[in-house]
Write a protein that binds this DNA or RNA. Structure first.
Lengths: 139, 139
DNA sequence: TATAATACGAAAATGATTTTCAATTTCAAA
DNA sequence: TTTGAAATTGAAAATCATTTTCGTATTATA
């Protein structure tokens, strides 16, 4: 039903190495070419899709296109992390915090809405970027 | 600096009429054509961009492209709503709830992250769709 | 009016993502 | 091993939402 290929392994390995920041499909293909394991862009997209379905990576859609990042909590089955993404610098924090889980339960109990942590991205400003913020909007 | 045009008014009026559900740019243009106020697609996009910048509407990026919806709380300046979007049926609830504002404050105080409610969409399943959920994933 | 700034829209361009399809690879069975 | 059906690959083409171009039309003001 599904073969194991070297392209598959190469993509996953590259995502593990780039785990600090989300990466675009094109940049990932570029990295792979550099590292001597070129993988066609179509295949990169196919593997990313698979990995996302399998819950191993997060797909982060932004104004600038989609980025992918391996989920640091992918091993922990019971409890999922929520994503905080800085809209200025693009940095993403994978947060496993009681308050977020409490919110999850509140929304389910009181508003009959079950958040999917994997597809929810809290967007805003990280500390560093909030500090730099330009009050005149001239960014 | 900015002229008032009938296309502008037509787009806003149409968004007000379709306020129940998010609508795509193409569907909006279609609606406008139907209602006898045809507006070019490029202009529709330009107006949507303006309205979003002005904080009058929400832009909701999804796997199926972008949707736009007028913000029912746009008049209330002090407090912004958060969006809950059902990933199954696409329905969006604009929620002004104390727990969410508490979360906002918790993230700011403890995690040094300031959420931008306008760009944050909590994605998951609404009650109706959660009921229909298919445990075998054959959706 | 005149005119300068702004907005319009059809058509072309863009660009990320997906699809096509012939060639290649995988893996289990012979 | 070989074999062959099923799955995967990748270059190129297709898709498709969104943006840009650019000549024309509209707006507000003098």
């Amino acid at each position: 039903m599904s073969y194991s290929t070297k392209q598959q392994q190469a993509v996953l390995q590259c995502l593990e190495q780039c785990s600090e920041e989300p990466i675009s499909a094109a940049a990932l293909a570029e990295q792979l070419r550099h590292s001597g394991n070129p993988v066609g862009l179509a295949t990169v997209y196919r593997q990313l899709e698979k990995l996302e379905q399998a819950g191993q990576i997060h797909k982060i859609r932004t104004e600038e296109g989609a980025f992918y990042q391996i989920c640091p909590h992918r091993a922990a089955q019971g409890r999922e992390c929520f994503l905080l993404r800085c809209e200025r610098c693009g940095h993403v924090v994978h947060l496993d915090c009681g308050h977020l889980h409490a919110l999850y339960e509140h929304l389910e109990a009181e508003h009959h809405f079950r958040i999917d942590p994997r597809r929810t991205i809290l967007t805003g400003l990280c500390q560093a970027c909030a500090g730099k913020e330009d009050p005149h909007g001239t960014q």
